[in-house]
């Protein structure tokens, strides 16, 4: 498993060159925006249950066949497995966001996930849709772009200092896209 720092080191070692100059700039960015990153991780972890359950609910609302007899979220045992998987995926994304590197997500979550889903008969298209909904919810919480209209009764505003979080929003989004890409 690597983080943003050890990723730089591993690629420098391949060239047997020390890390200096321009490569340090991106690491200094990580350090300078460290508190923003921790707030972003906190935005995901504090709302994990809401993000996951909304995503699975949304996925089912769009495709009600899933909870009819024979659907992949019927009976509750399989629905529970679905909620559990959503939480696991979100957890690994939160690790990747904390580390600033996707290796933990790749190695421990995505490696072989598609093959497992195919073997178990899980519809990967529906799974990808749930991850996409998690992406909208998580990025809205990190960037504080959620509105009472969109949030409804689940509306939540994170009490953090206002600032430009666009880089972290797109980084977090890229991890969700990575999951979608890996299973579809």
């Amino acid at each position: 498993m690597l983080d943003a720092f050890s990723r730089t080191v591993v690629s420098a070692d391949a060239k047997t060159a020390p890390v200096g100059g321009s490569e340090l700039a991106s690491l200094r960015d990580y350090v300078r925006n460290g508190n923003k990153r921790l707030d972003a991780v906190n935005a995901i972890t504090s709302n994990a249950y809401c993000i996951v359950s909304d995503a699975v609910t949304g996925m089912i609302c769009e495709n009600t066949g899933l909870i009819q007899a024979g659907g992949n979220c019927y009976p509750t045992r399989r629905m529970a497995a679905c909620l559990r998987d959503g939480e696991i995926v979100l957890r690994y994304i939160s690790y990747a966001l904390l580390a600033g590197d996707a290796s933990v997500l790749d190695d421990r979550c995505l490696n072989g996930l598609k093959e497992t889903y195919i073997a178990l008969g899980v519809p990967t298209q529906s799974a990808a849709r749930a991850v996409a909904i998690m992406k909208s919810a998580a990025t809205a919480l990190i960037g504080q772009t959620n509105t009472p209209e969109n949030g409804g009764t689940k509306y939540r505003k994170m009490e953090t200092t206002q600032g430009d979080c666009s880089a972290l929003v797109s980084e977090a989004g890229s991890y969700f896209d990575r999951v979608i890409g890996a299973i579809s």
Partner: peptide, 27 residues
């Protein structure tokens, strides 16, 4: 590669939990 972040993530993953406030403080 052992570093503060990877140590924290490994411990959180072994327990199957999201990164806690302790983890964020360590980072």
């Amino acid at each position: 590669m052992k570093s503060v972040v990877t140590t924290v993530v490994t411990a959180a993953d072994a327990a199957g939990r999201f990164p806690s406030q302790n983890d964020l403080e360590a980072v």
